[in-house]
């Protein structure tokens, strides 16, 4: 109950959430974060469901954050991922939370960062973050994971193109789901060719796995690869680097957000409308105004 309500408060940017997060922070950092992303229809939710069940068999507790896009027109959303996981509802060792992207710039990643910390502090061993692999904000969320699993399926038309933009680089493990369909091997080949072209490859070469999540095939192997990547991150020191980068980004974004609120406030209270008119009439130039505002803010 407390977990669920706190996530709601974080989503609504309730100041109480910040107070709670301040207290929770020392207890975070124990959970292992796995991002799962892929195009619509790739079977991510089913894969996540099976992954959770396999982790539960290994006596691990699991938190799931499932993100679905909100409608840009109404702000509403149908958060449909939970349906595939309905038989996990009564498992005390599993907590599933659906979140809408709510359209605000950076807003979701802030809320999901908070949700992750809340589940982490609550003691879940693994936290799975499932998002559709389209749009920058979803990619940002996935980037917060320790291990990122990129899911695709045969027969999506422009197979690889669908996942190429932006997320090819962030995949630590690639999954070709629904591998009983025609064309699965071709997708595997295309993926490996693209990975070989990647210049920035470090010591970890992302494995490509075939799964049929609906029949629970390939799930054990996926868990093993996730654990292997976890070991790699630990032994290579990469985990510290990633987490440092993540918290640095998060702090930067939070500061940016707060500062921009301050700026808006400042501009609103000054003689802003008149100043704008003067700029338009060329009696002032924007650059002098910028310097002045920053100077005032920093005082």
């Amino acid at each position: 109950m407390a977990i669920a309500r706190l996530i709601t408060k974080a989503e609504n940017e309730d100041p109480e959430a910040t107070i709670a997060l301040r207290q929770l922070y020392p207890k975070t950092g124990r959970a292992f974060l796995v991002g799962i992303t892929g195009p619509p229809g790739s079977g991510k939710s089913t894969l996540t469901d099976k992954l959770v069940k396999e982790l539960r068999k290994r006596n691990k507790t699991v938190g799931v954050i499932a993100v679905d896009p909100s409608s840009p027109f109404t702000g509403g959303a149908i958060l449909g991922d939970r349906i595939r996981m309905s038989d996990l509802a009564l498992d005390e060792g599993v907590f599933i939370r659906s979140m809408g992207t709510r359209g605000s710039l950076g807003g979701l990643s802030q809320a999901s960062h908070a949700a992750i910390k809340i589940l982490d502090a609550a003691g879940f061993d693994y936290i799975l973050i499932e998002t559709v692999g389209v749009g920058q904000s979803e990619i940002d969320i996935v980037k917060t994971a320790d291990t990122t699993v990129v899911v695709t399926v045969p027969g999506l038309g422009d197979d690889i193109q669908a996942i190429k933009a932006g997320i090819m680089e962030i995949g630590d493990i690639f999954v070709v789901n629904k591998a009983d369909r025609d064309g699965a091997d071709r997708v595997v080949i295309e993926l490996s060719q693209m990975l070989e072209l990647n210049q920035n490859m470090g010591e970890w070469f992302p494995p490509i796995l075939k799964t049929v999540a609906s029949r629970n095939e390939g799930i054990i192997q996926l868990v093993e690869k996730i654990d292997a990547h976890k070991d790699f991150l630990n032994s290579s020191g990469e985990l510290i680097i990633r987490r440092k980068e993540r918290i640095s980004n998060e702090i930067f974004n939070l500061i940016l957000k707060r500062v921009s609120v301050e700026i808006m406030r400042k501009l609103a209270e000054d003689n802003w409308e008149n100043e704008l008119a003067e700029i338009l009439e060329k009696r002032k130039n924007p650059y002098d105004v910028i310097d002045r505002v920053i100077k005032e803010l920093l005082q």
């Binding site: 309500r5 109404t74 449909g80 599933i96 939370r97």
Partner: peptide, 30 residues
Amino acid sequence: RAFRDAGFEVIYTGLRQTPEQIVAAAIQED
């Protein structure tokens, strides 16, 4: 769908849910 179009965030349980499952989902999803 109508709730979504009214701006709500909607979580659908799917068929054949026990009251216990529904209540657990309602609580987790707050």
